[in-house]
Amino acid sequence: MKIEEVFVVKAPIQKVWDFLWNVEEMVQCVPGVEGAEMLDPDNYRVRLKVKVGFISASFAIHMKVTEKHPPRFLRSVCTGEEDRRLSTLKQNNVLELQPLADGSTQVTLKGEVSLFGKLGTLGDSVVRGKARKMMEEFSNNVRTKIEAS
């Protein structure tokens, strides 16, 4: 399942990159993230709780940065296991930053998410809808935080 989100932050590219590259801070913008811990600059441990109505799932996620070209490009891979071991998730992310003529920055976020196990059968529309909504909220949070700082 692929999702893509493009948004503009009113801040220069370096400032946006600095915010995003502070990964522990950045992942707090993902709705449902309950904690993040840096293992080394390229590896992070993240706890995520997702709730869809009365169904909730907590994941222990390992995020690994696999490629970075500051201040324009960041590729990462997330693998997560749900606490009751009913499901796992895999996510490949690409973040691309592009400076715009007016001094602001366009952020393109591409994600490919797969849910395996029990939750993978929950229902396509709900899973996709939820993922898209989380992506939107993430974008909003990133923009708000950078622009407010």
Partner: peptide, 15 residues
Amino acid sequence: MVFDNGQLINPNFID
């Protein structure tokens, strides 16, 4: 039958 990276996402008669 619809698969996402090997995961069957509709193993029921709802989807």
